[in-house]
């Protein structure tokens, strides 16, 4: 089996998921300059809700794909409602507060959501029922499952849809105008509050999709999974250039590839001293490098422009 190609495939799958989550961070940052640290918990909620729905329906005799889609639909609705509510009760009252206040609030929201999830789902790891076909395909000596193929395809589709929404529609124009200059956007008749709510809802829907993907791909979900995943997706957004939509996608994919190749080769490179369980190190190494060497990210504009 070709290790290199295999790690590329794994990296693309992981990167697609990071990219979807990173978009949620970057859209909110682009519009209101806020890093919504509770976003990772929305992914976690999406994963657990989807997993619960799938578990309930697993014995129903419905086709696996239908069950997964139903799980996704419920998870998306729950996450959209949660995202909407978070903005409404935790961030909107702080719209004019100093930037540190909403940041701390975001961390508070994150803790609240984690604990709520722990109350509902307990501390245990939950296994994702094997409802999806586990067929494997060989390409050039590497293996890709149909689930992995689906993850890459769906993520690509959703990102394309998002780009179309933002670049080609009246609503997308209003979002970009708000991101560039909220006061002027208001002059044009844009209701900023609605645009911000909408941004949270869209980001949360993407988070729900990512949550289902993670729990299905790794067959597992638990109340604490949002923390590390959120941190990595945030890293991806910073890597690409926070506030930049294309940057979040590129940063996500790139981070997935870096992690996966790093995990694949770290054993060889260190003579077996470090193993693939050091995978998480790479994301944070990348984060530090970006912050030190190029804080505006790969495709980001100069941060001073926003100040």
């Amino acid at each position: 089996m070709d290790i290199f190609l295999q790690q590329i495939i794994n990296g693309l799958v992981l990167g697609s998921i990071y990219a979807l989550v990173a978009l949620g961070y970057t859209m909110v940052y682009g519009i209101m300059g806020l890093i919504n640290f509770a976003h990772g918990e929305v992914v976690m909620l999406g994963a657990l809700v989807a997993l619960s729905v799938v578990s309930v329906l697993a014995g129903s005799g419905l086709p696996g794909v239908v069950i997964a889609l139903l799980g996704l639909a419920v998870a998306a609705l729950v996450c959209m409602a949660v995202g909407f509510t978070i903005e409404r009760i935790a961030y909107r009252p702080l719209r004019k507060a100093p930037r540190l206040a909403p940041l701390i609030t975001a961390i508070g929201v994150s803790i609240v959501l984690q604990n709520l999830a722990m109350l509902v789902w307990g501390r245990n790891y939950h296994a994702f029922p094997p409802v999806l076909p586990a067929s494997q395909h060989e390409i050039l000596g590497a293996t890709i499952t149909s689930l992995q193929l689906a993850i890459i395809a769906i993520a690509a589709l959703m990102m394309a849809a998002l780009v179309l929404l933002i670049q080609r529609t009246r609503l997308g124009r209003a979002m970009r105008a708000t991101a560039e200059n909220p006061a002027i956007a208001q002059l044009m008749g844009v209701d900023i509050d609605r645009i911000i709510s909408f941004t949270f809802v869209i980001g949360s829907a993407l988070a729900a999709v990512a949550g289902l993907m993670v729990s299905a791909n790794y067959s597992i979900a638990h109340y604490y999974m949002g923390f590390i995943l959120g941190l990595k997706a945030f890293t991806a957004a910073v890597l690409g250039g926070i506030g930049n939509i294309a940057g979040a996608m590129i940063g996500g994919i790139l981070l997935g590839l870096i992690e996966s190749l790093g995990a694949g080769y770290i054993g060889d490179l260190t003579g077996g001293f470090l193993g693939s369980h050091y995978q998480d190190v790479f994301a944070f190494f990348v984060l530090i490098c970006v912050l030190v060497l190029r804080p505006s990210g790969l495709v980001g504009e100069k941060l001073a422009e926003r100040a």
Partner: peptide
């Protein structure tokens, strides 16, 4: 507005379309 307040990263047409947003 004073200082024009165009949306710098949107095209001229998009700026005009924003004017007609309402």
């Amino acid at each position: 507005p004073e200082g024009r307040g165009v949306f710098p990263r949107m095209t001229v047409v998009e700026n005009l379309l924003m004017g007609a947003y309402s």
